[in-house]
């Protein structure tokens, strides 16, 4: 019997992968297996070296047009996607499209058709509504690839993968790790993607720590985490602490008494950090609210890997983009749009 959850996973996999299991779109981590996630991390490893070159560019996506479709504001994500695309030698279009609730459905499709007419090869989509990237991927004319750069409260797969990359770089792997996610799990697409990634990669335990208003009531069954409403108890012995930003823009009041109160109960301080494992690392997807989610001392301290996350984000995004473009090339090739010869590149 197929459970609704399982069929949802299958649908997500079917939309994102081609018949050979190559990545076509990157929308969510649901339905992607461990081997593929490891593959992304391994490939990203190779791209780290590009930053060491005098010319920080590789010609993989030369001649391709990548459009950054940002319906929601973002600095870090948009700039790293832009830089990643440029380091792959693609041409980049940045479109900051302000969205209005009424115009959404049709405008989105119209925008899409217009960009398709410009022969854009890939869309990187950030949208305040959950499912926007899926919608575009479903409606985009093949072989246009779509990468989800964050949609509503649903998913932010490249952020989760860069976090996995950072964890692997520090911990060597995922086996036996206990990872704590602290804060606004309810509104966080980052948390949702991270939990999926961590469970797929096989960590020992994921803990969701936060006030009961911000950690979904059924998180334990729905997401596969251990819920904890007490920070001190939750931090005990963890190997990785991931702090989540309070998503004011998605809160319509009543979730927290005050930021001060939040920091008092859930803010990470040096003292609380000592409850975690001696070599625990502290992560945050950014932007940080100093004095709310964490002390400045912790943010700038030697356990913090927050800026590393940003550098790793570049490599991970280059990996995902080149994988999708590579698959697209295979598709074009199979369709006979490129001449076939016997010898390869050797």
């Amino acid at each position: 019997m197929i459970t609704p959850r399982a069929s949802q996973q299958e649908q997500a996999a079917a939309l994102q992968l081609d018949a050979d299991g190559n990545l076509k779109h990157f929308l969510t981590l649901d339905g992607l297996d461990r081997a593929l996630l490891i593959d992304i991390l391994d490939r990203a490893e190779g791209f780290l070296g590009v930053a060491q070159q005098a010319v920080k560019k590789v010609p993989l996506c030369r001649g391709k047009i990548i459009a950054n479709l940002f319906f929601e504001t973002s600095t870090r994500t948009r700039t790293t996607f832009e830089l990643a695309a440029k380091r792959l030698s693609a041409d980049v279009l940045n479109l900051n499209i302000s969205t209005s609730a009424t115009a959404k459905g049709e405008t989105l499709l119209d925008t899409l058709r217009n960009l398709e007419a410009m022969h854009v090869d890939m869309f990187v989509v950030r949208h305040a509504d959950s499912g926007a990237a899926h919608f575009i991927a479903t409606h985009a004319a093949a072989p246009v690839a779509v990468i989800n750069a964050g949609d509503g409260c649903y998913s932010h797969p490249t952020q989760a993968m860069l976090d996995m990359f950072t964890i692997r770089a520090h911990k060597g792997g995922f086996e036996g790790l206990t990872v704590a996610l602290v804060g606004d799990v309810l509104h966080s697409r980052v948390a949702r993607s991270q939990i999926t990634a961590l469970n797929t990669l096989g960590v020992a335990e994921v803990r969701a720590i936060g006030p009961s208003t911000l950690v979904p009531a059924r998180a334990a069954e729905a997401l596969g985490v251990r819920v904890c409403h007490d920070l001190r108890a939750g931090l005990r012995g963890v190997d990785v602490i991931i702090l989540l930003r309070l998503q004011h823009e998605r809160m319509d009041g009543g979730f927290l008494p005050s930021e001060h109160e939040y920091f008092h109960l859930f803010g990470l301080t040096e003292k609380r950090l000592r409850l975690a494992a001696a070599d625990a690392i502290v992560m945050h997807p950014g932007p940080i609210n100093r004095g709310v989610e964490m002390d400045s001392g912790v943010a700038d301290g030697d356990r913090s890997v927050i800026l590393e996350q940003v550098s790793n984000g570049l490599a991970v995004r280059m990996a995902v983009m080149s994988m999708c473009i590579g698959t697209q090339n295979l598709w074009l090739h199979a369709a006979g749009q490129r001449p076939l010869t016997e010898t390869g590149d050797a």
Binding site: R43, G46, G49, P59, L60, G326, H333, R338, G344
Partner: peptide, 23 residues
């Protein structure tokens, strides 16, 4: 040197799955 990112057949066969860092 790893030349995977510079291959001229990327458009035909996709990317090499194992890229070792150039150093």
């Amino acid at each position: 040197l790893d030349i995977s990112f510079y291959r001229d057949d990327f458009t035909r066969i996709g990317m090499h799955p194992r890229v070792r860092p150039s150093h």
